[in-house]
């Protein structure tokens, strides 16, 4: 019995796709597997051990860099999400007005400018500001991260807002709610999944940043990615794999959460 002619099939496409998925995960899988290697090779398997995780844990620099990464990501993500939420409210569900397109372009600009150029620009700017103010703390990194995280936080919030039913808010204002009350008790709760998704995206993006951090950081302000970048120049031990694995797991957990959060609005509509 011949199979029905499938109009969607293209010969070899499924194979290439599978090959792609395989290649996409092969390096990551290798990296994770060898972080559990008891030997110090990244190619010869010598048995299971948590030795490299332990060694990373005992590495003062790694711990400091990790804590710094998390601090920066947390603060920058909150700032970026707050700004993005307000901006999303200001730019969605409105009749076009003067400046709306300019706002869109500015908000998306960080995505378009090559990161290396932004990094250089911030290096120049902040080196001046550091001289003027004498302040050289984490503030610079936080501001820089918050700025380039805004477009990422903005995307899911805007998407959520656009899929929301305006009539609910109209109903609320009919019931004598002030615009602040409407926002607080109607819009915000409905918008919450979008905000959470934005927060998580911003957090992950900040956590992953290398280039801008590398240029903006002052001495002794290594985040985990810049610390790793520095280490990669030397002989690499599976300790790097262990650190990467931990970071992978954190990112993965957040992104998976994001995946399920951003699925819900579709279900609502069905």
């Amino acid at each position: 019995m011949a199979k029905t002619f499938s109009i969607k099939r293209q010969p070899g496409f499924a194979t290439i796709a599978m090959f792609c998925f395989f290649l996409l995960y092969l390096p990551i899988a290798t990296l994770v597997v060898y972080s559990f290697n008891s030997g110090s090779s990244i190619a010869i398997w010598e048995g299971f051990s948590l030795r490299w995780f332990q060694s990373a844990w005992n590495n003062q620099q790694v711990i400091e860099a990790s804590v710094r990464s998390l601090q920066i990501a947390a603060v920058a993500a909150v700032i970026a999400t707050a700004c993005a939420t307000l901006a999303a409210i200001a730019t969605t569900r409105t009749a076009p007005y003067r400046g709306l397109t300019i706002k869109y372009s500015i908000i998306n600009m960080p995505l378009l400018v090559p990161e290396i150029v932004t990094a250089v620009a911030l290096l120049i700017l902040f080196s001046r500001v550091k001289v003027w103010t004498g302040y050289s703390g984490l503030g610079y990194l936080i501001v820089a991260h918050a700025a380039f995280c805004i477009p990422f936080a903005y995307m899911p919030i805007r998407a959520r807002l656009e899929s929301m039913d305006l009539s609910l808010e109209r109903a609320a204002s009919d019931l004598y709610a002030s615009s602040f009350q409407t926002f607080r008790y109607v819009t915000l709760p409905l918008l919450w999944p979008g905000i959470l998704a934005g927060l998580m995206l911003a957090f992950v993006i900040s956590l992953d940043d290398v280039v801008i951090t590398e240029f903006v950081k002052s001495g002794g302000q290594d985040t985990l990615p810049t610390y790793m970048l520095g280490q990669l120049r030397r002989v690499v031990t599976p300790e790097m794999n262990a650190i990467s694995t931990v970071f992978l797991v954190i990112s993965l957990a957040i992104v998976t959460l994001f995946f399920f959060l951003s699925r819900t609005p579709q279900k609502d509509n069905e």
């Binding site: 700004c83 307000l86 901006a87 007005y97 500015i106 400018v113 700017l125 700025a147």
Partner: peptide, 26 residues
């Protein structure tokens, strides 16, 4: 329109100050 500019101001200022604006310095 004014409210909407106010709402978007923090995002715009942050991006202009720490992402797009510095390009002019370059």
């Amino acid at each position: 329109v004014r409210d909407r500019w106010l709402l978007s101001a923090p995002a715009l200022i942050l991006i202009i100050a720490a992402s797009v604006g510095p390009l002019l310095i370059v």
